[in-house]
């Protein structure tokens, strides 16, 4: 088990996954930041959050996605970034599962708003689950992330 954890290949696989997740989150945040009102409507459509928290979520979440995406791509505070990615993926999956269980016929709001993207299905949930699995891989197996983190560690040591 220890040999598996110490395998050097994890860093390279994790680098690929990090870059992929970083691009996914960059694509996801773009429309939300440009059109906060549309995204707020998407958040409200899930009918999960109380009205008082809808706009707060719609405003802050895309910026968290943006910073996290940049951190993943640059390899800066990678483990904190991927912790946030995993937390967001769990949050998205819970919201999707509730909407699907209620039988709501609506767009995901993940990459575009106002139903402009594909309607939510169980496949959307599987897709998010796959991204969560990627995030967990990076979280657990990328011990010394390639990127700015490693450069900064070298300089200080």
């Amino acid at each position: 088990m220890s040999r598996f954890l110490d395998w050097n290949g994890h860093g390279w696989i994790a680098l690929g996954l990090r870059l992929y997740l970083g691009v996914v989150f960059l694509l996801a945040c773009w429309h939300k930041i440009l059109h906060p009102a549309s995204f707020a409507l998407d958040v409200a459509t899930y009918q999960i959050l109380p009205l008082e928290l809808v706009n707060l979520q719609a405003l802050v979440l895309p910026w968290v996605e943006l910073f996290v995406a940049l951190m993943l791509v640059l390899g800066l505070r990678t483990r904190a970034a991927v912790l946030l990615v995993n937390a967001m993926m769990v949050m998205f999956m819970v919201a999707l599962a509730i909407a699907l269980a209620r039988g709501l016929d609506m767009g995901c709001g993940c990459f575009a708003s106002e139903g402009g993207d594909d309607p939510i299905t169980w496949r959307t949930l599987v897709r998010d689950g796959t991204w969560l699995a990627m995030g967990l891989y990076v979280q657990w197996l990328d011990r010394r992330p390639l990127g700015l983190d490693r450069l900064l560690t070298r300089r200080t040591s």
Binding site: A37, A40, A44, N55, L59
Partner: peptide, 8 residues
């Protein structure tokens, strides 16, 4: 200019 209120 098209900002939204923090609380709807």
């Amino acid at each position: 200019h098209d900002g939204i209120p923090i609380v709807a």
